[in-house]
Simulated assay, not measured.
Amino acid sequence: MSNFIKQVALVGGGGNAGSHIARALLQTGKHSVTAISRSSSSSSSSTIPPGIPTVRVNYGDPESLVSALRGYDALVITLGVMAPPGTQESLIRAAVQAGVPWILPNEWAADTYDAGLQRDVVPYKQKAEFRKFIEDLPGGGAVSYVAVHTGFWYEFSLPIPDAFGFDLTTRTATLFDDGTAKISTSTLPQVGRAVAALLSLPVTHPDPAVATLDRFRNKPVYVSSFTVSQSDMLDSLCRVTGTLKADWTVRHESSANRYSAGVEAIQRGDWSGMVKMMYARNFFRDGAGDYERTRGTANGVLGLESEDLDEATTMAVERGKY
């Protein structure tokens, strides 16, 4: 096997993160990317970035998956919240059987290694379980994972009122507690660049000073565009929209109460509470959302620069118009 990742299979290549990952991988000129899609998917192949072939598979047919994944150096999984139950398990099993040596599982979130977040946010606990699932599968010792943590996607999240607490239409800001708790977050283009840089590293190198993919074997990788508070976001929104804070209705809400309200909504069958619950939990005073401080990032190793907050806010405002 080559000491570099060349052939990459990508699940979710037409999605929010997947499309940016696909483009960034192609732009390196070092990778051949193939999109893996369900044969029953109603999504159009036109959502896949140009230059990426699509292989359609039957997720209910294990051999179909195994056959589709043979010969790849890495499998990158990006799945939406509406993906059928068992999808990631099927993909991981097939990757192990097909001999894919590297898997980037469906992480793309805040710090899913944090004990408090695992306890309080069920999807984060499930991500930890998927990592153990890879380690414990028969034959899984030949397959390694890298868990890429990006935080919430900034320009995707900012226009969603239940997420960061901003309603751009009514110019209402709901600040959790005093609005100064910081979280690490990434733009979607930064997510793409991070994966492309990671998979462009040599797998191994005799010089320990050289960054390698092996350094991150079965470990987390933390990346970000910046680490900001809601107050920082509001200041940026004012600059970008040419408004004053006096033009905004600013409210305050306990992050703990907001989290509990989200949990209660889920218990009533209202799954919109999931967004409120997940985001509010990352703003708790324990600092779990600020992994730049608690864990450090791999931005330097991967050559990722911090992004301009106002430029990202501009993207969010434009996104919020649609």
Score class of each variant (00 low, 15 high):
Q267C: 05
A316S: 10
T313H: 08
Q118C: 11
Q190F: 04
A94L: 04
K219V: 11
M278D: 15
D178W: 00
Y291N: 02
A24Y: 06
V317L: 03
D235Q: 05
S236R: 01
A147I: 13
F133C: 09
A256L: 14
V250W: 05
R23I: 10
D162R: 01
Y222R: 01
L137P: 12
S43C: 00
P208T: 13
K30R: 15
I48D: 05
S42K: 13
V76G: 01
P208G: 08
C238G: 06
Y59L: 06
P105F: 01
D270S: 09
Y279W: 12
I183C: 02
L302F: 12
G151E: 08
S200L: 04
H20W: 12
I52T: 10
S231P: 00
A173W: 01
P206Y: 02
M82I: 09
A181Y: 04
T243Y: 04
M233A: 04
T314S: 13
T54N: 11
A256P: 06
A9W: 03
R119Y: 10
F164L: 14
F284P: 04
G140A: 11
G60M: 02
A142H: 15
P159R: 01
V275P: 13
E63A: 10
P62A: 04
I5N: 01
Q267H: 13
L117P: 00
E129Y: 07
R171E: 08
G139L: 14
S46P: 00
Q267E: 15
A288G: 13
C238H: 02
V228K: 00
K30Y: 12
L302H: 08
G262P: 11
A109S: 05
R251K: 14
T169K: 08
G18A: 08
P189A: 08
A95G: 03
S40Q: 07
V33F: 07
K182Y: 05
E253P: 03
A17G: 09
S32E: 15
R56I: 00
L158I: 15
F133G: 09
R171M: 11
S186M: 06
T227W: 07
G141W: 11
E63M: 06
V317R: 00
A298D: 07
T297Q: 05
G303L: 08
A128Y: 06
S260R: 14
T297D: 13
M1D: 04
S254L: 10
K132A: 14
G116P: 03
A163R: 01
A209H: 05
A256I: 15
A246S: 15
Q88D: 10
E307L: 05
G18D: 10
V228F: 03
E155D: 14
N3W: 03
G269Q: 10
